Computed example of a mutant assay.
Amino acid sequence: MKFTKMQGLGNDYVYIDCFSERVENPEALAVRIADRHFGVGGDGLILICPSEIAPVRMRMFNADGSEGKMCGNGVRCVARYAFDHGLVKTRRFAVETGAGLREAEVLEREVSIDMGEVKLDGELVEPITVDGRETSMTPVNVGNPHAVYLVDSLEALKGLDLEKIGPAYEHHPRFPEGVNSEFLYVESPEKLHMRVYERGSGETLACGTGATAVAFAAMERDLAAERVTVELLGGSLQLERLSNGHFRMTGPAVEVFSGCYFSE
């Protein structure tokens, strides 16, 4: 089975072109192929598929085999692959995702995505107790669930032991299907810093939907301007709230290598 490894800010997935390859059991394949010791290695598996309503369709699977509806870094890479490999002929086109259609524009070095409508999924500042600690968060829906937690300083953000505390946030009873958890420090109205513990994958270097959720939460709480740079462990993304309420995300999408996976 031919595959391509791609990454957006270090958020890396194994991509399979289902215009030419067939995947019978993507849930099981995701667990095997994403293993960084016994497989190709990555944060999960993404299938680039034919679509009845768009030029291409994205199916995204986390490293634990669970299927997600949306992945911001993933959809940028799908758009880049589709254009570079001739699946589409124009630089602007729609990508079908589990969360609906997402409009993409492939630029020279980056890819821009209309992330669609972002919604508050509860109270703007909602109290919550995580592992016995009382805190607060902003619940956000970006086609998948997010919880954004404010952190007092950049040092505190860097000092978080997400490997230890992350599971308690991901599996909190407030979110029976699990949640992506973002930890946000506001440096200025134009610059935000975040770390993310992704549902089904653990801490990753970047999360596009997470960056969108962070930008939305900061803007709604009057902490950020309508256009911001979000700094993640793997690099930076540009987020802008459009006049129709949608969010536009712009960032890199890089093809790393291709190969042949000998599936079981």
Results as ranks from 00 to 15, higher is better:
46 I>C: 02
185 Y>A: 11
67 E>L: 12
153 S>G: 07
199 R>C: 08
252 P>E: 13
114 D>Q: 03
157 L>H: 08
163 E>M: 12
169 Y>I: 06
109 R>H: 14
131 D>E: 09
153 S>Q: 04
138 T>Y: 09
152 D>H: 00
169 Y>W: 15
97 T>G: 12
221 R>H: 05
241 R>L: 05
149 Y>S: 11
15 Y>M: 13
201 S>G: 06
229 T>R: 04
144 N>I: 13
160 L>F: 12
171 H>L: 15
63 A>D: 04
137 M>S: 06
98 G>V: 10
258 S>Y: 01
29 L>D: 02
236 S>M: 10
124 L>D: 03
204 T>H: 11
121 D>G: 00
169 Y>K: 13
205 L>K: 14
44 G>C: 02
97 T>Q: 08
89 K>W: 01
184 L>S: 08
178 G>S: 12
227 R>C: 02
246 H>W: 01
73 N>I: 07
142 V>C: 13
231 E>F: 09
237 L>F: 13
160 L>H: 11
19 F>H: 07
182 E>K: 07
86 G>V: 08
219 M>C: 00
167 P>Y: 09
198 E>C: 09
16 I>T: 04
188 S>T: 15
32 R>L: 14
199 R>G: 07
171 H>A: 15
97 T>A: 10
72 G>C: 11
235 G>Y: 10
147 A>R: 07
91 R>F: 03
214 V>W: 01
104 A>N: 05
31 V>R: 14
57 R>E: 13
86 G>F: 11
153 S>L: 07
89 K>H: 09
36 R>P: 02
73 N>G: 10
42 G>R: 06
225 A>H: 05
150 L>K: 07
46 I>G: 04
8 G>L: 05
206 A>F: 14
154 L>W: 02
1 M>N: 03
146 H>P: 06
117 E>I: 14
186 V>S: 09
111 V>R: 06
214 V>D: 10
87 L>D: 08
192 L>V: 05
130 V>Y: 03
223 L>H: 05
148 V>S: 06
234 G>S: 07
119 K>M: 05
171 H>W: 15
186 V>T: 12
203 E>F: 09
234 G>L: 12
238 Q>N: 12
147 A>C: 06
143 G>E: 07
102 R>C: 15
26 P>H: 00
73 N>C: 12
40 V>P: 03
201 S>Y: 10
59 R>V: 01
114 D>F: 14
190 E>N: 12
212 T>D: 05
219 M>A: 03
39 G>M: 07
218 A>N: 02
183 F>A: 11
69 K>R: 15
128 I>M: 10
244 N>C: 03
51 S>W: 08
122 G>W: 09
1 M>S: 07
187 E>R: 15
62 N>R: 05
131 D>M: 13
233 L>D: 14
46 I>F: 06
131 D>P: 02
53 I>G: 00
21 E>C: 03
34 A>R: 00
30 A>F: 05
157 L>S: 04
204 T>N: 11
51 S>P: 09
252 P>C: 04
182 E>C: 15
18 C>L: 04
19 F>N: 01
245 G>S: 05
153 S>Y: 10
240 E>M: 04
46 I>T: 04
151 V>M: 13
200 G>D: 08
206 A>Q: 12
169 Y>L: 15
126 E>I: 00
250 T>R: 13
